[in-house]
Protein backbone atom coordinates (compact mmCIF):
# COMPACT_ATOMS: atom_id res chain seq x y z
CA UNK A 1 0.00 0.00 0.00
CA UNK A 2 1.16 3.45 -0.85
CA UNK A 3 1.08 4.77 2.68
CA UNK A 4 3.78 2.38 3.83
CA UNK A 5 6.42 3.66 1.46
CA UNK A 6 8.60 6.67 2.05
CA UNK A 7 7.79 9.87 0.17
CA UNK A 8 9.67 9.81 -3.08
CA UNK A 9 11.42 13.16 -3.01
CA UNK A 10 13.33 14.00 0.09
CA UNK A 11 15.54 16.39 -1.77
CA UNK A 12 12.57 18.73 -2.06
CA UNK A 13 12.54 19.26 1.67
CA UNK A 14 13.63 22.80 2.42
CA UNK A 15 16.50 22.46 4.86
CA UNK A 16 15.79 25.72 6.61
CA UNK A 17 12.40 24.69 7.97
CA UNK A 18 12.55 21.28 9.62
CA UNK A 19 9.67 22.28 11.84
CA UNK A 20 7.18 22.69 9.01
CA UNK A 21 5.88 19.10 8.84
CA UNK A 22 5.34 19.01 12.60
CA UNK A 23 3.39 22.23 12.51
CA UNK A 24 1.29 20.96 9.62
CA UNK A 25 0.45 17.68 11.25
CA UNK A 26 0.05 19.02 14.79
CA UNK A 27 -3.73 19.62 14.63
CA UNK A 28 -4.32 16.04 13.51
CA UNK A 29 -1.97 14.62 16.14
CA UNK A 30 -3.41 16.69 18.97
CA UNK A 31 -7.00 15.86 18.05
CA UNK A 32 -6.23 12.15 17.81
CA UNK A 33 -4.18 12.07 21.02
CA UNK A 34 -6.87 13.82 23.01
CA UNK A 35 -9.95 12.11 21.63
CA UNK A 36 -8.72 8.71 20.43
CA UNK A 37 -5.53 7.63 22.15
CA UNK A 38 -6.26 8.98 25.60
CA UNK A 39 -9.80 7.53 25.71
CA UNK A 40 -8.43 4.18 24.56
CA UNK A 41 -5.83 4.18 27.29
CA UNK A 42 -8.49 5.05 29.82
CA UNK A 43 -10.60 2.13 28.62
CA UNK A 44 -7.71 -0.21 29.38
CA UNK A 45 -7.35 1.47 32.79
CA UNK A 46 -11.07 1.16 33.58
CA UNK A 47 -11.04 -2.48 32.55
CA UNK A 48 -8.78 -3.15 35.53
CA UNK A 49 -11.17 -1.37 37.91
CA UNK A 50 -14.48 -2.12 39.54
CA UNK A 51 -16.20 0.97 38.24
CA UNK A 52 -19.95 1.26 38.30
CA UNK A 53 -21.45 4.73 38.11
CA UNK A 54 -24.60 3.61 39.89
CA UNK A 55 -22.69 1.81 42.69
CA UNK A 56 -19.78 4.15 43.47
CA UNK A 57 -19.15 2.58 46.91
CA UNK A 58 -17.88 -0.61 45.22
CA UNK A 59 -15.35 1.15 43.00
CA UNK A 60 -11.84 -0.20 43.54
CA UNK A 61 -8.88 -1.74 41.77
CA UNK A 62 -9.98 -5.04 40.30
CA UNK A 63 -6.88 -6.51 38.71
CA UNK A 64 -7.98 -9.08 36.19
CA UNK A 65 -11.30 -9.79 37.91
CA UNK A 66 -13.33 -8.33 35.05
CA UNK A 67 -11.52 -10.47 32.54
CA UNK A 68 -11.97 -13.57 34.69
CA UNK A 69 -15.71 -12.92 34.83
CA UNK A 70 -15.77 -12.39 31.09
CA UNK A 71 -13.95 -15.60 30.27
CA UNK A 72 -15.56 -17.97 32.76
CA UNK A 73 -18.81 -16.56 34.16
CA UNK A 74 -20.45 -14.70 31.31
CA UNK A 75 -22.17 -16.90 28.71
CA UNK A 76 -23.46 -13.75 26.98
CA UNK A 77 -19.87 -12.73 26.13
CA UNK A 78 -19.29 -15.99 24.26
CA UNK A 79 -22.75 -15.94 22.72
CA UNK A 80 -22.35 -12.39 21.44
CA UNK A 81 -18.86 -13.16 20.16
CA UNK A 82 -20.16 -16.19 18.26
CA UNK A 83 -22.98 -14.11 16.82
CA UNK A 84 -20.55 -11.35 15.83
CA UNK A 85 -18.51 -13.90 13.88
CA UNK A 86 -21.59 -15.28 12.16
CA UNK A 87 -22.87 -11.80 11.36
CA UNK A 88 -19.58 -10.49 10.01
CA UNK A 89 -18.77 -13.54 7.88
CA UNK A 90 -22.27 -13.72 6.39
CA UNK A 91 -22.47 -10.01 5.65
CA UNK A 92 -18.99 -9.59 4.22
CA UNK A 93 -19.20 -12.71 2.05
CA UNK A 94 -22.59 -11.77 0.58
CA UNK A 95 -21.69 -8.10 0.16
CA UNK A 96 -18.47 -9.03 -1.63
CA UNK A 97 -20.18 -11.42 -4.06
CA UNK A 98 -22.99 -9.02 -4.93
CA UNK A 99 -20.72 -5.98 -4.85
CA UNK A 100 -18.23 -7.57 -7.25
CA UNK A 101 -21.01 -8.66 -9.60
CA UNK A 102 -22.48 -5.18 -9.52
CA UNK A 103 -19.10 -3.54 -10.13
CA UNK A 104 -18.48 -5.78 -13.15
CA UNK A 105 -21.90 -4.95 -14.57
CA UNK A 106 -21.68 -1.18 -14.20
CA UNK A 107 -18.12 -1.24 -15.53
CA UNK A 108 -19.48 -2.31 -18.92
CA UNK A 109 -20.50 0.26 -21.49
CA UNK A 110 -24.26 0.52 -21.91
CA UNK A 111 -27.02 3.08 -22.25
CA UNK A 112 -28.11 4.48 -18.90
CA UNK A 113 -24.88 3.58 -17.14
CA UNK A 114 -24.37 6.85 -15.29
CA UNK A 115 -27.91 6.85 -13.92
CA UNK A 116 -27.73 3.17 -13.01
CA UNK A 117 -24.51 3.73 -11.11
CA UNK A 118 -25.94 6.61 -9.11
CA UNK A 119 -29.06 4.60 -8.28
CA UNK A 120 -27.45 1.32 -7.26
CA UNK A 121 -24.79 3.08 -5.19
CA UNK A 122 -27.25 5.33 -3.39
CA UNK A 123 -28.07 3.14 -0.33
CA UNK A 124 -24.40 3.55 0.64
CA UNK A 125 -25.24 7.03 1.87
CA UNK A 126 -28.14 5.87 4.04
CA UNK A 127 -27.72 5.62 7.81
CA UNK A 128 -28.28 2.51 9.92
CA UNK A 129 -31.24 4.08 11.67
CA UNK A 130 -32.86 5.06 8.39
CA UNK A 131 -32.25 1.57 7.02
CA UNK A 132 -34.08 0.27 10.05
CA UNK A 133 -36.94 2.71 9.47
CA UNK A 134 -37.34 1.62 5.86
CA UNK A 135 -37.10 -2.10 6.53
CA UNK A 136 -39.46 -1.92 9.51
CA UNK A 137 -42.01 -0.60 7.02
CA UNK A 138 -41.20 -3.41 4.60
CA UNK A 139 -41.27 -6.17 7.21
CA UNK A 140 -44.28 -5.03 9.22
CA UNK A 141 -47.25 -7.40 8.80
CA UNK A 142 -49.70 -4.54 8.14
CA UNK A 143 -47.57 -2.13 6.07
CA UNK A 144 -45.07 -4.49 4.56
CA UNK A 145 -44.48 -6.32 1.33
CA UNK A 146 -45.89 -9.55 2.74
CA UNK A 147 -49.29 -7.96 3.27
CA UNK A 148 -49.55 -6.84 -0.33
CA UNK A 149 -48.35 -10.23 -1.53
CA UNK A 150 -51.03 -11.79 0.68
CA UNK A 151 -53.63 -9.51 -0.94
CA UNK A 152 -52.62 -11.04 -4.24
CA UNK A 153 -52.96 -14.52 -2.71
CA UNK A 154 -49.26 -15.27 -2.91
CA UNK A 155 -48.63 -15.52 0.85
CA UNK A 156 -50.40 -15.94 4.15
CA UNK A 157 -51.21 -12.85 6.18
CA UNK A 158 -49.36 -12.03 9.36
CA UNK A 159 -45.75 -12.82 8.45
CA UNK A 160 -43.53 -10.84 10.86
CA UNK A 161 -39.92 -11.67 10.04
CA UNK A 162 -38.48 -9.53 12.84
CA UNK A 163 -40.54 -11.16 15.59
CA UNK A 164 -39.90 -14.72 14.47
CA UNK A 165 -36.69 -16.23 15.90
CA UNK A 166 -36.27 -18.40 12.78
CA UNK A 167 -36.24 -15.49 10.36
CA UNK A 168 -34.89 -12.54 12.34
CA UNK A 169 -31.28 -13.24 11.40
CA UNK A 170 -31.90 -13.31 7.66
CA UNK A 171 -34.27 -10.36 7.90
CA UNK A 172 -31.45 -8.31 9.47
CA UNK A 173 -28.90 -9.68 6.99
CA UNK A 174 -31.05 -8.61 4.04
CA UNK A 175 -31.53 -5.09 5.40
CA UNK A 176 -27.81 -4.65 6.00
CA UNK A 177 -27.03 -6.13 2.60
CA UNK A 178 -29.18 -3.48 0.96
CA UNK A 179 -27.01 -0.80 2.48
CA UNK A 180 -23.67 -2.65 2.38
CA UNK A 181 -23.32 -3.93 -1.20
CA UNK A 182 -22.69 -0.46 -2.69
CA UNK A 183 -19.55 -0.05 -0.56
CA UNK A 184 -17.89 -3.00 -2.32
CA UNK A 185 -19.31 -2.01 -5.66
CA UNK A 186 -17.80 1.50 -5.38
CA UNK A 187 -14.37 0.35 -4.19
CA UNK A 188 -14.08 -2.51 -6.67
CA UNK A 189 -15.33 -0.39 -9.55
CA UNK A 190 -12.66 2.18 -8.71
CA UNK A 191 -10.06 -0.55 -8.96
CA UNK A 192 -11.56 -2.15 -12.08
CA UNK A 193 -11.11 1.12 -13.93
CA UNK A 194 -7.36 0.85 -13.51
CA UNK A 195 -7.13 -2.50 -15.33
CA UNK A 196 -5.31 -1.93 -18.57
CA UNK A 197 -7.50 -2.50 -21.63
CA UNK A 198 -4.53 -3.83 -23.54
CA UNK A 199 -4.37 -6.88 -21.28
CA UNK A 200 -7.92 -7.86 -22.17
CA UNK A 201 -7.28 -7.23 -25.84
CA UNK A 202 -4.15 -9.32 -25.81
CA UNK A 203 -5.98 -12.10 -23.99
CA UNK A 204 -8.90 -12.08 -26.40
CA UNK A 205 -6.55 -12.11 -29.36
CA UNK A 206 -5.08 -15.24 -27.79
CA UNK A 207 -8.58 -16.68 -27.66
CA UNK A 208 -9.16 -16.57 -23.91
CA UNK A 209 -12.80 -16.97 -22.89
CA UNK A 210 -14.52 -14.38 -20.82
CA UNK A 211 -14.39 -16.58 -17.71
CA UNK A 212 -10.65 -17.12 -18.19
CA UNK A 213 -10.05 -13.42 -18.66
CA UNK A 214 -11.96 -12.77 -15.43
CA UNK A 215 -10.01 -15.42 -13.51
CA UNK A 216 -6.57 -14.57 -14.89
CA UNK A 217 -6.68 -10.82 -15.40
CA UNK A 218 -9.50 -9.22 -13.44
CA UNK A 219 -9.30 -11.19 -10.21
CA UNK A 220 -5.51 -10.99 -9.75
CA UNK A 221 -5.71 -7.26 -10.42
CA UNK A 222 -8.47 -6.84 -7.84
CA UNK A 223 -6.78 -9.05 -5.25
CA UNK A 224 -5.38 -6.33 -3.00
CA UNK A 225 -8.50 -4.21 -3.28
CA UNK A 226 -10.62 -7.22 -2.33
CA UNK A 227 -8.44 -8.05 0.67
CA UNK A 228 -8.42 -4.47 1.88
CA UNK A 229 -12.11 -3.83 1.33
CA UNK A 230 -13.19 -7.10 2.97
CA UNK A 231 -11.00 -6.30 5.97
CA UNK A 232 -12.27 -2.74 6.30
CA UNK A 233 -15.81 -3.94 5.89
CA UNK A 234 -15.41 -6.79 8.38
CA UNK A 235 -14.08 -4.38 10.99
CA UNK A 236 -16.87 -1.97 10.19
CA UNK A 237 -19.59 -4.62 10.34
CA UNK A 238 -18.17 -5.90 13.61
CA UNK A 239 -18.10 -2.45 15.18
CA UNK A 240 -21.24 -0.90 13.82
CA UNK A 241 -24.23 -1.25 16.11
CA UNK A 242 -26.74 1.25 14.66
CA UNK A 243 -28.75 -1.17 12.58
CA UNK A 244 -29.05 -4.05 15.03
CA UNK A 245 -29.56 -1.67 17.96
CA UNK A 246 -32.59 -0.11 16.32
CA UNK A 247 -33.86 -3.02 14.20
CA UNK A 248 -33.81 -5.90 16.68
CA UNK A 249 -32.38 -4.34 19.84
CA UNK A 250 -30.21 -7.46 20.00
CA UNK A 251 -33.21 -9.70 20.49
CA UNK A 252 -35.19 -11.82 20.55
CA UNK A 253 -33.53 -13.23 23.69
CA UNK A 254 -30.07 -11.79 22.83
CA UNK A 255 -30.09 -13.82 19.61
CA UNK A 256 -28.82 -10.92 17.52
CA UNK A 257 -26.52 -9.27 20.07
CA UNK A 258 -23.04 -8.58 18.73
CA UNK A 259 -20.17 -7.93 21.09
CA UNK A 260 -20.11 -4.14 20.57
CA UNK A 261 -23.89 -4.06 20.99
CA UNK A 262 -23.42 -5.91 24.27
CA UNK A 263 -20.81 -3.28 25.23
CA UNK A 264 -23.12 -0.42 24.33
CA UNK A 265 -26.01 -1.83 26.35
CA UNK A 266 -23.72 -2.64 29.31
CA UNK A 267 -22.51 0.95 29.30
CA UNK A 268 -25.82 2.64 28.62
CA UNK A 269 -28.18 0.55 30.70
CA UNK A 270 -26.33 -1.03 33.62
CA UNK A 271 -23.71 1.76 33.95
CA UNK A 272 -21.09 -0.88 34.68
CA UNK A 273 -18.22 1.01 33.07
CA UNK A 274 -15.52 -1.25 34.50
CA UNK A 275 -16.94 -4.43 33.03
CA UNK A 276 -17.99 -2.62 29.85
CA UNK A 277 -14.37 -1.48 29.43
CA UNK A 278 -13.11 -5.04 29.89
CA UNK A 279 -15.50 -6.21 27.17
CA UNK A 280 -14.27 -3.39 24.94
CA UNK A 281 -10.63 -4.21 25.49
CA UNK A 282 -11.36 -7.83 24.65
CA UNK A 283 -13.21 -6.80 21.48
CA UNK A 284 -10.32 -4.58 20.40
CA UNK A 285 -7.72 -7.31 20.99
CA UNK A 286 -9.76 -9.93 19.14
CA UNK A 287 -10.33 -7.59 16.21
CA UNK A 288 -6.68 -6.58 15.95
CA UNK A 289 -5.53 -10.20 16.17
CA UNK A 290 -7.88 -11.38 13.42
CA UNK A 291 -7.06 -8.41 11.20
CA UNK A 292 -3.33 -9.04 11.35
CA UNK A 293 -3.85 -12.76 10.83
CA UNK A 294 -6.06 -12.02 7.82
CA UNK A 295 -3.52 -9.70 6.23
CA UNK A 296 -0.75 -12.27 6.78
CA UNK A 297 -2.70 -15.27 5.52
CA UNK A 298 -4.04 -13.47 2.48
CA UNK A 299 -0.51 -12.31 1.55
CA UNK A 300 -1.66 -8.71 1.14
CA UNK A 301 0.58 -6.72 -1.16
CA UNK A 302 2.41 -9.80 -2.49
CA UNK A 303 2.57 -10.01 -6.26
Amino acid sequence: MAIAQAPPRERARPARAPRTPYVLIAPAVIAMLAFLVYPMASVVYYSLQHYNVSKPWDNAFAGLDNFRTLLFDDPLFWQSLAFSAKWVVTEVALQLVFGLALALIVNETFIGRAVSRALVFSPWAVSGVLTTGIWVLLYNPTTGVSRYLADLGLMNYGAAPLANPDTVFWAAVLAELWRGVPFFAILLLADLQTVSRDLYEAASVDGASRLRRFLHITLPHLKDAIILSTLLRAVWEFNNVDLLYTLTGGGPAHQTTTLPLYVATTAAQSHNFGYGSALTTAAFLILTFFSIAYLRLSKFGAR
Partner: peptide, 24 residues
Amino acid sequence: LFMIAMLCTQFIPGAMMLIPLFEI
Protein backbone atom coordinates in the same frame (compact mmCIF):
# COMPACT_ATOMS: atom_id res chain seq x y z
CA LEU B 1 4.74 5.69 13.81
CA PHE B 2 1.92 8.05 12.97
CA MET B 3 1.00 6.00 9.91
CA ILE B 4 0.83 2.81 11.94
CA ALA B 5 -1.19 4.53 14.66
CA MET B 6 -3.68 5.72 12.05
CA LEU B 7 -4.16 2.21 10.75
CA CYS B 8 -4.68 0.94 14.30
CA THR B 9 -7.42 3.47 14.94
CA GLN B 10 -9.48 1.74 12.27
CA PHE B 11 -9.95 -1.19 14.64
CA ILE B 12 -11.40 0.88 17.46
CA PRO B 13 -15.10 0.15 17.90
CA GLY B 14 -17.09 3.38 18.12
CA ALA B 15 -19.14 1.76 20.86
CA MET B 16 -15.93 1.33 22.81
CA MET B 17 -15.25 5.05 22.87
CA LEU B 18 -18.65 5.94 24.29
CA ILE B 19 -17.66 5.63 27.94
CA PRO B 20 -14.31 7.46 27.90
CA LEU B 21 -15.46 10.13 25.44
CA PHE B 22 -18.47 10.82 27.61
CA GLU B 23 -16.19 11.33 30.60
CA ILE B 24 -13.95 13.68 28.62
